[in-house]
């Protein structure tokens, strides 16, 4: 009896140790390759990056040099159009969820749909926008690419806006209402303004997410080897260019792909760190 008891106690301690070991091992197994990816990326990117990358257009195969100036400008234009569509609609949707629809069935349904929409593959967004915009227009265009990115931003912006607005203390809303301020004014100038730091970082996060999207651009923005700023024409984009160059057989193009990846990553890391900094510091300083 006593022996059995001791044996069981020993087994339990053993199981405890084994579980701890496995959890640590899992963490190492996950973190090590992830860090490896990151370090490798930064290394390859930084040796590949040079000034020409930002100032030159791609050169034909076989020539050395060139850059992705057209893709950087293209990405900026696509993201600009996307933000113009996605950010206002997303913020307005978030305002509805937090300020008007709180607790209603409609708001719950919208919140749920937004979360589900967030999980719809970007490639599906791409072909949907292709048939909605590209087919009626008759050709690929920067505009259609922007629409695809904008639609993808809406659910993210909407949900973060809602979450940030919910953090604004009720007392602040009451103070505004008690001054006889019209509701729309109180929402925009008081509630949204109080949560603005959080909302802006939420928008940046959505921006960073779509900045790296490739799949929805393949049949909308399409890509362009030359310089284009027109919304009605196919346009180059950084992630598209990385995709094409990565699968090419030329070392020079591989180099450019790594450089492009580094530029994208730096943009994204900046956005994510900023979001983390702002949310950890408390979005609403001083508001209790």
């Amino acid at each position: 009896m006593r022996d059995e008891h001791q044996l069981r106690a020993k087994l339990r301690t053993l199981a405890d140790g084994a579980a701890t070991g496995l959890a640590v091992l899992a963490t190492v197994l996950v973190v090590a390759p992830l860090v490896a990816i990151f370090v490798y990326l930064v290394y390859k990117g930084s040796v590949s990056l040079n000034w020409a990358f930002f100032t030159h257009n791609p050169v034909p195969v076989g020539e050395v040099g060139g850059g992705m100036a057209n893709a950087i400008v293209g990405s900026a234009i696509l993201l600009g159009v996307g933000s113009l569509i996605g950010i206002p609609i997303g913020i307005a949707g978030g305002i509805f969820l937090a300020e008007f629809g709180r607790g209603t069935k409609l708001a719950n349904a919208i919140r749920f749909t937004a979360d589900v929409l967030n999980g719809v593959p970007s490639i599906v967004m791409g072909i949907a926008v292709y048939s909605l915009v590209v087919v009626p227009q008759g050709h690929f265009s920067a505009f259609s690419g922007g629409v695809a990115l904008g639609i993808m931003m809406i659910p993210t912006v909407c949900r973060t806006t809602e979450e940030m607005l919910l953090m604004v203390p009720h007392a602040v809303r009451e103070a505004a209402l008690a001054l006889g301020v019209p509701n729309w004014r109180s929402v925009l100038s008081i509630t949204v303004r109080t949560a603005s730091a959080g909302i802006i970082t939420g928008c940046m996060l959505a921006f960073a997410r779509v900045a790296g999207e490739t799949a929805p651009l393949i049949f909308t923005a399409f890509g362009n080897v030359g310089w284009s700023e027109k919304l009605s024409e196919p346009i180059a984009a950084l992630p598209l260019q990385i995709y094409v160059y990565a699968l090419s057989p030329y070392d020079e193009w591989h180099r450019l792909a790594w450089a492009g990846a580094l530029v994208l990553i730096v943009l994204i890391v900046l956005a994510v760190s900023l979001v983390r900094y702002v949310t950890s510091r408390g979005v609403l300083k001083g508001a209790s």
């Binding site: 990816i37 490798y40 990326l41 999207e213 490739t214 990565a246 790594w258 990846a261």
Partner: peptide, 11 residues
């Protein structure tokens, strides 16, 4: 979670 798919592909 924020690294784009195409960069994972590149790697």
């Amino acid at each position: 979670a924020a690294i784009p798919s195409v960069i994972y592909g590149l790697w």
